[in-house]
């Protein structure tokens, strides 16, 4: 039976479709709003059902039609990913764009070594992504079309003193996406890695130190991500000046990097 929330797609009512995983707040919520405004019908996926409902209701009211549908799901419930993806595919009929944005950061003190915190970050930021990217990759591989966007971070470009697991999760995600790109480009699939700098989200608000620069809002981040999506970029720093800064940081030799405190 059809999803009562969504009118049938027809030649005169075609549908561009996207999934945003991690859509309930921050960059994900802003990107869901942005994609809906650009004409996409978005499956908003996140753990917190109440936030999703509110977000989707707000978007749909603004457009006067269903542009965002909530699909509550916990990315660490790996086994339920294929069923959730299938449910969305059935609802939409096809899939143009997949965005993995789910991410958490637990701040650790310099003298703190906490496996539970690290595991939580790796599960949400990396394993959740891998759990989604496998079936999505398999789908796009078979369909010979599609666009995958992974929201990684500038934090994945180096292993810094204050965030070993967060840095590692983002570095691994970046590398995973690169492999996926090399696999899928030849099948007509685009894979875009997004590396935001400081974005004013819950993650930053919980940070102990507040020495941020080039700080942008979630809406500005979503705007930058949309530009990268539209240009079908392979990697994009958001905002772009981070590209130059990270080029320098990536080349700081280890004997100096070891002595730095950021």
């Amino acid at each position: 039976m059809p999803d009562p929330r969504l009118p049938a797609a027809t030649p005169l009512r075609p549908r561009r479709t996207a999934i945003v995983v991690g859509a309930s707040s921050g960059i994900g919520a802003a990107l869901t709003r942005k994609l809906a405004a650009e004409g996409y019908t978005v499956a908003a996926v996140a753990r917190r059902a109440d936030l999703l409902e509110t977000l989707c209701a707000e978007i749909n009211a603004a457009h006067g039609e269903a542009r965002a549908l909530p699909f509550p799901h916990d990315v660490t419930d790996y086994d339920s990913v294929p069923a959730t993806l299938q449910k969305i595919l059935r609802t939409f009929g096809h899939l143009d764009l997949f965005v993995y944005n789910a991410g958490i950061q637990h701040h650790v003190r310099l003298d703190e070594f906490d496996f539970e915190k690290d595991r939580a970050m790796l599960e949400t930021n990396l394993l959740g992504a891998v759990a989604w990217l496998n079936p999505v990759g398999a789908m796009f591989h078979a369909l010979k079309a599609g666009h995958i966007v992974g929201i990684s971070s500038v934090a994945g470009d180096r292993g810094r003193i204050g965030a070993p697991a967060y840095n590692a999760s983002k570095a691994a995600l970046t590398t995973y996406l690169e492999s996926l790109r090399n696999r899928l480009t030849r099948r007509g699939v685009t894979v875009t890695t997004i590396k935001p700098g400081f974005v004013d989200t819950d993650i930053l608000r919980a940070a102990p130190k507040k020495n941020f620069f080039w700080l942008i809002t979630s809406e500005q981040a979503a705007e930058g991500i949309w530009k990268a999506i539209r240009a079908r970029k392979q990697t994009a720093y958001v905002p772009p000046q981070w590209g130059l800064l990270m080029l320098i940081i990536r080349h700081i030799p280890s004997f100096i990097f070891r002595r730095l405190s950021f």
């Binding site: 086994d79 294929p82 096809h94 398999a138 789908m139 591989h141 078979a142 369909l143 079309a145």
Partner: peptide, 14 residues
Amino acid sequence: MSLSSLPYQRLTYL
């Protein structure tokens, strides 16, 4: 539903 139960390799745009 496990990943292996859905025949993704058969997915085709018609």
